[in-house]
Design a protein around this nucleic acid. Structure first.
Length: 341
DNA sequence: ATGATTTGACCTCT
DNA sequence: AGAGGTCAAATCAT
């Protein structure tokens, strides 16, 4: 991981992203002002993003997984070789073996409202199938799988565990990709679909939960632009008034699909915990993420999500969305940290 | 009656 | 052998 190849391509992408950054900044300024201008900016951001994605896809980066890293995830994922592409190899079987699950996992930290047992409603229906005391932790870990596992063969699962430091916070780790169709989400997707292609329902849900007020923050990046592994990529913007219905994140980057990252949500925005609800109380929340993409398409999704965020027609909400560490696969890493400042 | 949760046992991995 | 993940029967909730 030291030597990055494809610097030429990286630079181009960096340039493009820098443009996006500028546009986002402008958009941020305009958020309280002219909707027309906002739309224009959004449109520019979108096309730049598309170009960047195209560059990435064209081969400047060849993804290979990096160390599991900072997300603090220690699942089999990190130890497995890494067929990034094959997500479907082994879904859960009906035996009790602890199989090396899919590589895809995504970790978020959410807070719960009033001591709720479960954190945020991430847009999916989950069924608890187990709970276990984990060594070294004060709270047991709950195991959930998609409710549609049987009906639709959805293999997505997640693990929820309260953090030791703050019992109101949960670490949620997603595994696998949702292959089920979520009605509520689907509906939203349709609505939002105008602006962005909905590629991944999952991402959707999650993003949906975060959608409200976005303020992308950044933290620590100090690296050279050409070095993708640490390239600062930050999006920050106090978006005022994002109505849940206009969920900016209605698009795709999904947990299940790709990486590991953390999301912290303030208690106020957490909703009870079950799926089919689209209403989220949006409060400022913040995403401090570390992401590892397993596939370029995922990257695209993420980018789309970011674009979506900035493009939401926002009326009046407060969002605090901060992404501080995007990490693209092996050779491609974006540290979303100092984008906005 | 149906579906979700609880919980102890079982299985695999390290 | 211990820890973590899953199964499945029993129990609870709707």
């Amino acid at each position: 991981m030291d030597s990055m190849e494809g610097n030429g391509g990286s630079r181009l992408v960096v340039t493009e992203l820098s443009h996006i950054k500028e546009l986002v900044k402008q958009l941020e300024v305009q958020l309280g002002g002219s909707p027309e201008l906002c739309k224009h900016l959004v449109s520019q951001i979108f096309s730049l993003t598309e170009r960047s994605i195209g560059m990435i896809k064209s081969g400047s980066f060849d993804g290979r997984k990096r160390a599991a890293g900072d997300a603090g995830l220690d699942s089999p994922l990190s130890t497995t070789p890494s067929p990034l592409s094959d997500v479907s190899d082994v879904p859960f079987k009906t035996n009790k073996k602890r199989k090396t699950m899919e590589k895809r996992q995504y970790q978020i930290t959410v807070s719960s409202t009033g001591g709720a047992e479960t954190p945020v409603d991430d847009g999916h229906s989950w069924r608890k199938y187990g709970q276990k005391e984990i060594l070294g932790t004060k709270h047991p870990r709950g195991y959930y799988r998609c409710t549609h596992r049987n009906s639709q063969g959805c293999v997505a699962t997640k693990q929820v565990q309260r953090t030791d430091e703050d019992p109101t916070l949960f670490n949620v780790i997603y595994h696998g990709t949702h292959t089920c169709v979520q009605k509520a989400v689907a509906g939203q997707a349709a609505a939002a679909g105008k602006n962005q292609p909905l590629q991944n329902p999952d991402a959707h849900c999650l993003l949906q939960s975060m959608s409200s007020s976005l303020t992308v923050k950044t933290e620590g990046l100090a690296t050279e632009p050409q070095d993708w592994s640490t390239m600062p990529f930050c999006l920050s913007s106090p978006v005022t008034g994002l109505a849940p219905e206009h969920n900016p994140f209605s698009t795709p980057s999904t947990p299940e699909n790709c990486f590991a990252r953390r999301v912290s949500l303030s208690p106020s925005l957490v909703s009870p915990a079950t799926s089919d609800s689209n209403h989220l109380s949006m409060a400022p929340f913040h995403v401090a993420g570390n992401a590892e993409w397993c596939a370029q398409s995922e990257l695209q999704e993420v980018v789309s999500a970011l674009v979506a965020v900035t493009s939401t027609p926002v009326p009046a909400m407060e969002t605090d969305f901060s992404v501080d560490g995007f990490e693209f696969d092996p050779d491609f890493t974006i540290d979303v940290s100092s984008f906005f400042e």
